[in-house]
Design a protein around this nucleic acid. Sequence first.
DNA 1: CGCTTTTGACCTGCGC
DNA 2: GCGCAGGTCAAAAGCG
Length: 190
Amino acid sequence: MNGPQDPNPNNTRFEEMMDLSEFQLSDYLLLEGDFEGDFSAKTMANSEENSAGSSNGFAPPEASERRNSNIRCKRGKNKSGTGMRVAFRTKSELEVMDDGFKWRKYGKKSVKNSPNPRNYYKCSSRGCLVKKRVERDRDDSSYVMTTYEGVHNHESPSLVYYNYKQMGPVVDAVASGGWDPQAPPSHYSS
DNA sequence: CGCTTTTGACCTGCGC
DNA sequence: GCGCAGGTCAAAAGCG
């Protein structure tokens, strides 16, 4: 870490990290800590249409009428054991955002109450257990719900570039809860 | 040739 | 205890 620790995460940094020329970051939901029982969530309405309350942020309208495993981890703990989850809602034609990391698709599942299938990705980096879920918003298919689970134990090639370019801990600015690509490599070697 | 994607089966947890 | 739904695995196929 060679940048100032921003106590007040600047969301726009993350937008810059990703190639948002084709995306419109509509919502950013940070889920941090473990998921046993309760969790803390912060939603940031970044887009003007969102702040206008048209889509009311991340919370799906059906959240209260069905068990929402999108937010709550129904198994009590996530398998990756990192206890860190970040969800985004972006307006995009593309389902997969280029966030600088390399992902390998390992599953696809159609979910109930949604006409669109959900795709499951794992980070291709060896030893990195970060997962990503991608699905289209069932109410507005022009939006893509992306959920990251876990913390990268490495930097992405493009992130190195961005760090260099912007002289700042890009990802650190995203989540103070542990979204740190330079996290101690507890089990990562080579 | 190596890596990624696809896809159906299997596993696990939760609600009833 | 049973059924459902979500999540993961793994073999086969495809692609660069």
